[in-house]
């Protein structure tokens, strides 16, 4: 019986990690192309608001998730227009995107505060999902979890194996050389930014559709920023993002249980534990492998084609 409880705890860890994995893998691909989008939080919260609105109005979780992704894509397109089209400073534009997204999502979501939906059902594979101890954990999660891990595997394969992924990495390493060889620097970066937006939107959608099935303003609570930090400390390697996200999820659940058990520490302090733990662990991880932990060399630099 206790091991069944243990499995349920682990499942909540995965649930807490999933929005981070989704947002971080999108940002990772964006950054590997040389674009630093600090607006993850803004894209995520827009995704959360519009996903809930879409799902509530249509009654379909799938349509809601698509609405969330489109919201993220729209925000990323705005960012791409500014930073890739007009070569505006990426840091400033990213920060503005977050502030803009936070405000706009509050406005658009105002009519949906206090409404509730049902969580989507979990996957059930006869036989496998009923395995003792691990059946639910591995074969009985909700569909978003599998999408998140699929995206990580896909991104890892795309970046290291495919020719297009190679061109994307080259663009992030040295945009002058890439341009000199005739690679489409701006198009690659714009598409990478859109992918990042879609992932951030989906991460937001997960929050309002599956994690807490309601919408309230500001509910992303800094997860976008954690996702950004995960990408850096994961040394821009996809699978390390998963590691960091799971750690964050684990610490979140631990502190919730600690608060419930009232161990005598202030709740605010305990709420900060996952953020601290994740950053400390990832700093240790990346400092051990400094030689390989190089950022994409052209990250954050605007590219202006000499014509």
């Amino acid at each position: 019986m206790t091991s069944e409880i243990f499995q349920l705890v682990l499942m909540t860890v995965v649930t807490a990690a999933t929005p981070l994995i989704l947002a971080a893998i999108g940002e990772l691909v964006t950054e590997r192309a040389g674009v630093l989008n600090l607006g993850v939080e803004g894209m995520m919260i827009m995704g959360a608001a519009l996903a809930f609105a879409g799902a509530y109005l249509t009654g379909s979780t799938t349509l809601g998730a698509i609405c969330g992704m489109l919201a993220g894509v729209a925000m990323a397109a705005l960012f791409g227009l500014l930073t890739i089209g007009f070569a505006i400073n990426q840091v400033a534009a990213g920060l503005a995107l977050t502030i803009f997204g936070t405000g706009l999502s509050g406005l658009l979501g105002a009519g949906f505060v206090g409404l509730k939906r049902d969580r989507p059902g979990h996957v059930h594979i006869p036989g496998l999902s009923d395995l003792p101890y691990v059946g639910q954990l591995f074969f009985g999660e909700d569909i978003f979890v599998y999408i998140a891990f699929g995206l990580v595997a896909g991104a890892a394969w795309f970046l290291s194996r495919s020719r297009t992924g190679l061109a994307l990495r080259a663009t992030g390493d040295n945009h002058q050389s890439a341009h000199a060889l005739g690679l489409p620097v701006r198009r690659t970066r714009f598409l990478a930014a859109l992918f990042g937006g879609a992932c951030a939107g989906l991460a937001g959608a997960y929050l309002t559709l599956a994690y807490t099935p309601f919408w309230s303003p500001g509910m992303t609570a800094g997860r976008g920023w954690i996702a950004l930090a995960l990408v850096v400390f994961a040394s821009w390697k996809p699978w390390r993002v998963v590691l960091g996200a799971l750690l964050f999820g684990g610490a979140t659940m631990l502190q919730l249980h600690a608060q419930a058990a009232s161990i005598g520490l202030p709740g605010q302090l305990l709420s900060a534990v996952p953020y601290l733990a994740t950053i400390v662990a990832l700093v240790l991880l990346s400092s051990g492998a400094r030689k390989n932990a190089t950022a994409p060399a052209a990250l954050g630099q605007a590219f202006i084609a000499p014509r």
């Binding site: 990495r169 050389s177 890439a178 000199a180 060399a297």
Partner: peptide, 10 residues
């Protein structure tokens, strides 16, 4: 190219 159009990390 004079200034090599190479990618250091590839």
């Amino acid at each position: 190219f004079q200034h090599f159009s190479l990618f250091d990390n590839l």
